[in-house]
Amino acid sequence: MEELAPSAMAPRSRREFMANLVLGTGTVLGLGSLANCFLEYLYPVVAPIKLVEVPAGKPGDIPPDGVRLVQLPEGPVLLEKAGNEVRAWSAICTHLGCTVQWHPEEKKFICPCHQGIYDFNGNVLSGPPPRPLEKLQVKVRDEQVFVLMSSLKEEQG
């Protein structure tokens, strides 16, 4: 039988080094792939985003030259009437996701969280928001307003 090295400090044989290398690599790869499985398990299954037409009430419900906030399952939407045209914006502040509020006396959208202020056209007037409010496509059909929004009915794993 082969004799063991007298102490841990003694020079290792090539064979011992190779054995340790194979064991070490195997352990790292094995545990690494297990950790990867854990991570994949935790990462949600999300279906690709689809655009859907969402009914958002009647054009008559929007005050003339004013704004109406509607809560849709896909998210809050601001409907605006400029003359006869109906326009829509996502009411989600582009800063950190709070819902902006319409202030009719100032004709501004103000985010209550970090004081982001947007004008009547959704452009940033002041505060930290990095982008204008997201403009949404609108269709008016049979006296019904439809807003084109991304479906949030994701498949959750």
């Binding site: 809560q71 998210g75 800063h95 709070c98 985010c111 209550p112 970090h114 505060g127």
Partner: peptide, 22 residues
Amino acid sequence: GNTPGHIRPEWYFFPTYRWLKL
């Protein structure tokens, strides 16, 4: 979908909250 008019976190996050406003 409806953030209340006055909202702010607990006191220990005030500095971060103010920093983000600025």
